Simulated scan of single mutants.
Amino acid sequence: MACAALLVSTTACSGKSDDGAAEPATSTSSSASTSTSATPTASSSSTPQSSPAETLPDLTAAQVVAAFTAQQYRCSTDEAYQTCSKGSTSVQVLIGTHPRPAVLSLQASGAPAEAATALSEFVPQALEVAHVNPRATIADWLKQQQGKAGTTTAGNWAVEFSTESGTERPGAILTLTDKLCKANCGAE
């Protein structure tokens, strides 16, 4: 999937994260196609083992990339993003010095229906690797979308799901944007 530039206002992120807050997830569906992202963990074990309800500490973008590298993903720099890929799945992490990545995009390539299924299977582990809280809420919401584009809020993340077809790289995309980020929050 081509890296879609997410045009978000440029501001600095606060160092405080409250993803474990009891903020309910809300969602709206749309048929618009947009790219999104997700995040991995900085653990060196082959399979992260935290419980879905456990709040994990925030990781910086560099730590997220290191965590995916430890999971045998191949990572490279593509403009403002580090892209880590394995098989038909990939994670794009906005490069920066924020307390946690300002943007994470999880992607699965292929025909939209199959890619949406693959993405739903990939998301729980990828969000754990990236230390995204609340992981289970986001993964459950994505499954409920059943391939339909939509947006929601989970903790301090704005979440967007979309599919792409009729392009050079069709697939499904889940993008997470840090709502606490105040500066340099998107690719320029």
Rank of each mutant, 00 (worst) to 15 (best):
C3N: 12
C3H: 14
S9T: 07
S9Y: 12
T10K: 15
T11V: 12
G15D: 03
G15F: 04
G15R: 09
D18H: 13
G20I: 06
T28V: 09
S29A: 03
A32E: 01
A32D: 03
S33H: 10
T36Q: 12
T36P: 09
A38R: 10
P40W: 14
P40M: 15
T41V: 15
A42P: 11
A42L: 07
A42F: 09
S43T: 11
S46C: 04
T47S: 04
P48H: 06
S50D: 12
S51W: 02
S51L: 04
P52K: 02
P52M: 01
A53E: 12
P57S: 00
D58C: 12
L59V: 14
L59F: 13
A61E: 05
A61D: 03
A62P: 00
Q63A: 15
V64L: 07
A66N: 06
A66L: 05
A67G: 15
A67Y: 10
F68S: 14
F68P: 11
F68A: 15
A70S: 03
Q71C: 11
Q71H: 13
Q72P: 09
Y73S: 03
R74A: 14
R74Q: 14
S76L: 03
S76F: 02
E79F: 05
E79D: 08
A80I: 03
A80L: 02
A80D: 05
Y81P: 09
C84H: 04
C84E: 02
K86C: 02
S88I: 02
S88M: 07
S88N: 05
T89R: 13
S90H: 06
L94T: 08
L94V: 07
I95L: 13
I95Y: 05
G96P: 08
T97M: 14
R100T: 00
P101D: 01
P101V: 02
P101M: 02
S105M: 12
L106G: 11
Q107G: 08
P112A: 00
E114F: 08
A115I: 05
A116S: 08
T117G: 11
A118F: 03
A118K: 12
S120W: 10
S120V: 11
P124H: 07
Q125T: 11
A126C: 01
L127R: 08
E128K: 12
N133R: 05
P134H: 07
P134I: 09
P134N: 10
R135Q: 14
R135C: 10
R135F: 08
L142Y: 00
Q146I: 01
G147F: 00
K148C: 00
K148E: 00
G150D: 00
T151E: 04
T153W: 00
A154Q: 02
A154W: 06
G155C: 05
G155F: 07
N156P: 10
W157A: 06
V159T: 06
V159G: 00
V159R: 00
E160A: 13
E160K: 08
F161N: 00
F161Y: 00
T163F: 09
T163K: 06
S165F: 06
G166H: 02
T167I: 09
E168Y: 11
E168L: 12
P170G: 08
A172T: 01
L174A: 01
L176T: 02
L176G: 08
T177R: 15
D178S: 08
K179P: 13
C181F: 05
E188F: 04
E188S: 13
E188I: 01
